[in-house]
């Protein structure tokens, strides 16, 4: 009996997903984009507003485009599924890879579409791993927030410099231009920069 009821459940699940999917696509504009800072103006409490803005920024920070190169180990992950990077690579002394097997051995100054079909190797002139102190994988959004604000961990950036980094840095910007075969980070880099500015201006509060 179990053998018969399982496929039935599968069919039900399939029907459910067919019904639910168009609904989520209909709301896709919101789900895949970023709300502007003004959307949080109604939150009277400054701290709560700041926290809400950072939570919105978290859609970007926790996207595979950011997390893949903020690993907990010395090796990045890759792809939307965030699997271990293949070929096996290590960060090396400076985050730019090991001698003879640098990030730049494969990652050039721009995304490189495969010559033999779909997909691409991502590229940017500054392609490298985030430092160990900025390991985000496995952290909660609140913990990520804390390390982002910590100048001893974030590469010495002040909050003002962080606005620029998020809004203008070209390697950060790659997240919105990841090349064929990858889902871009939500929204735009300009929107992300504006949210960062609003977050700093409201006191740079972190979610719990």
């Amino acid at each position: 009996m179990t053998m018969i009821s399982l496929p039935r459940f599968g069919v039900l699940a399939l029907i459910a997903s067919v019904i639910v999917l168009p609904l989520s696509i209909a709301r896709g504009g919101e789900a895949s984009g970023l709300k502007p800072a003004s959307a949080f103006a109604g939150i009277a409490d400054r701290n709560a507003r700041s926290t809400a803005i950072f939570t919105e920024m978290g859609k970007v920070l926790m996207s595979p485009r950011c997390l893949n190169c903020h690993p907990r180990t010395d090796s990045p992950t890759q792809g939307d599924a965030m699997l271990l990077h293949v070929p096996p690579v290590t960060r090396g002394p400076d985050g730019f890879g090991a001698a003879g097997m640098e990030c730049a051995t494969c990652h050039g100054p721009r995304n490189a579409p495969f010559g033999n079909g779909g997909g691409s190797v991502p590229g940017n002139p500054k392609w490298h791993l985030a430092p160990r102190s900025m390991a985000w994988q496995g952290l909660t959004l609140g913990q990520i927030c804390a390390v982002i604000k910590d100048r001893t961990k974030n590469g010495g950036l002040s909050l003002d410099q962080l606005i620029d980094h998020n809004g203008k840095d070209e390697l950060v910007g790659w997240g919105w231009n990841p090349g064929p075969g990858r889902i871009p980070a939500p929204g735009t880099q300009a929107e992300f920069g504006a949210l960062t500015k609003a977050w700093v201006e409201t006191g740079a509060a972190c979610p719990k």
Binding site: P87, P88, V89, T90, G92, A98, A99, G100, M101, T105, C106
Partner: peptide, 24 residues
Amino acid sequence: MSAIGLLAQKPKPTDADIDAGMAG
């Protein structure tokens, strides 16, 4: 080619250097 590229940067590579540099 990879071995030459590795040795150009690490004239006396350790086993770990060889593993990392030739991993691809």
